[in-house]
Structures are given as C-alpha cells and as structure tokens.
Design a protein around this nucleic acid. Sequence first.
DNA 1: TAAAACATACCGTCTGGACGGTTTCTTGTC
DNA 2: GACAAGAAACCGTCCAGACGGTATGTTTTA
Lengths: 186, 186
Amino acid sequence: MSQAHHRKKHPEAVRQQLLEVAAKLSLEKGPASVTLDAVSQAAGVSKGGLLHHFPNKLSLLDGLFADLTDRLDQALAEKMRDDPEPKGRFTRAYVSVFFQPEGMADGEKWQVLTIALISEPHLRERWRHWVERHLSENVGTDSALDAMLVRYAVDGLWLADLLGSPTIDAANRAAMMDKLLAISRL
Amino acid sequence: MSQAHHRKKHPEAVRQQLLEVAAKLSLEKGPASVTLDAVSQAAGVSKGGLLHHFPNKLSLLDGLFADLTDRLDQALAEKMRDDPEPKGRFTRAYVSVFFQPEGMADGEKWQVLTIALISEPHLRERWRHWVERHLSENVGTDSALDAMLVRYAVDGLWLADLLGSPTIDAANRAAMMDKLLAISRL
DNA sequence: TAAAACATACCGTCTGGACGGTTTCTTGTC
DNA sequence: GACAAGAAACCGTCCAGACGGTATGTTTTA
C-alpha cells in the first residue's frame, strides 16, 4: 500500500493536476497516449482516483475542453475590454491573445485543445458551438471578410506551431502581428 | 474458408483501396478508428492481407502520407506551370489548389492528412520536411510576409473546414480567394 | 458518522501483429 | 506452348499486452 493514500487531500488541486497532465501528454506524445493509466500515474494518483474525478474518459476530455475554453474566453474578454474601437475588436483580441508572449504557457495548452479537437469527433461539435457563439456575439463588428481572413491567418500560424512546421522568427512574428492588426481596422 | 481467397489478384488496386479506406475511416470516425481490423474489413481484405501490403501500422500511415503529398505536389506543380508571374507563384498555387471545387474529393483526403498529421507525432516530422522543402524551393518568390500570411490564411480555412466550424458561404469564399490572390501579388 | 477522496484488484474487450497455410502469378526452360 | 518452380498475394487463427471500466476496499474530511 502506497503512502499516497495517507497524504492530505486536495481534491481541486488533484483535479487540476489531472487536466494538466492530460494536456501535457497529448501535446508531447500524441493524443493516443492519453490513457487513463498514463494520466493517473503521471499525476501521482491511482486510476481509481482519476475515475473518481472523471467518471469516464470522455468526461476527462470534456473537462479539458471546458478548462481551456474558459481560459481562452477570459483572455479574449480582457483584451476586448481594453480596446476602444468597436470595429474588429474581437478579431484583434483573437490576434493579441495568440501573439502574447507571456501567454505561451496557455498557448501550449490551446495546442492541446486543437489536437484533442481533431482527434475526438465528439469535441468537434463543442468547438463548433464555441465558434458559433463568438461569431454571433460579434456579428457586425467582426463579420467582414478582412476580419475573417485575419482570424484564419492566426489559426494557420497556430496550426503551423502545433505541427512544428518551420515558421517565422520573432522579429517577423511581430511584423506579422502588426500586419494582421492593421487589416482588422480596414 | 471464404471465396475471397480465390478471387483474381489485383495487388495495386487492393493497396489503393486500403489507403482510401483508411483515409475515409479517419475522416469520418476519427483517427482512433483506424485499426488494422477496421481497415482490412472495410477494404474487403483479411488482416493478413493488409499486413502483406503494409508490414505494420506505421507503414500504412506512411503510405497514406506519401500518397496524399504526391497528389498535392502534382496539383501544385500543375498550377505553378500555368502561372507566368514568378512572384508569389507558389503561394497562388497553394491558394488555388485549396479553393478548386473539383478537387474536393482530394480536399477531403487532405483533411485526413491533417488529422493523421496531428495525431501521429512521427508524421509531424515528415510534414516538417515537406514544408521545409517547398519553402526552400520557392525562397525569394514566396518568402514575403504577405505570402506567408496568405498561406496561413489558407491553412486556417482548411482547419475550419476540417473541424466543421461554420465558415463562409460559396460567394464569400470566391471573394476570399480573390483577396488572397491579390495579396500574393503585392 | 456519513460522505467524499482516494487506493487496489480485477475483468472483458480490443488491438497490433506473428505465424503458417493456400492460392494465384510470373518467369525461365524445353 | 507446356510446365515446373519459385515468388507474390492473399487467408484464418492465435496471442500478449494495453485499455476502459467496475467493484470493493480504506482513509480522510466535514
């Protein structure tokens, strides 16, 4: 019998740890490596412990999705709050959040989101709803073709980062960001 | 013993069929559903038969990757041949191939490529090489930030299609294509 | 002391793949 | 053109391990 049983209980911390480990695993070793055994072990919890927090695997992935989109929503809302110009506001927030250097810790997690998204058909539906919601919430200010083009470009860069494709260096990255922000104001 | 054993042998056709089935399965039911059993059964071949053409699962995925990138290369080369303007030629080909309506059959397969790419860390390396090759082959003509922006936008749209996110309608799609082509000539 | 938060043990299923056999194709020889 | 003989193209079975999940315990917390 291990000592883990006897340690102090921090259910919320354990839950968070499980989500983080799942994200890390998916990012580093591919989504196929996200197994209940691997996740629980890497999180220092037994499989039974994991299954206590998430009754099945799907709910674990759902938890991951909810966690990540919550952070994303928060970051977007914050950026939008600081932007006085209505036109293209959401698009600029989208750009900024992606390019922000300090958010790279979260950035990696969003890569995970993409991986999980593509792998699990069930999560695609959730993502569709997320996009639909933000699209309809910002219709009028961010529906222009130019705005969509900008957001698509961000997604493309995101994907390139995710796949580890050779992208642009830091200097050009900043220039790219300026370019995109400029287009969003057209 | 079934009759399948006695049928005419068409190794090349069977091989192709296996690749197509694998692609279809991955697209429709997620990459996790691409099992040797599922693929071989859907292709009307025994698992042994499948393993004859592809000695292991990885080589099946590799075959899929090679098949798809070959088609992509061909389509790109064809488009580039018809383009007299050197500047941004590759980028325009990239745009055209993605937006071509008749290529939608292949388009779906490229979606599969993306799925497989993201799921299998091993294939990411191959993709990195593909991108690197084309980037270096077209350095000078397609290295401008504007050109990269265009290609990233295409990738973003591609991803949106892949995820089934709500995108733009056909009319706006054409307008978007024109926009992207215009930027490639700046 | 009841419930929450874990741990341990175990099970049924699926999966990749090894293996040995069978049938068809191809090639060289006469 | 007949025919042996090896190579190529399959088939069907079996297995070890991994995986998701259940059932049941034990400890901590409220």
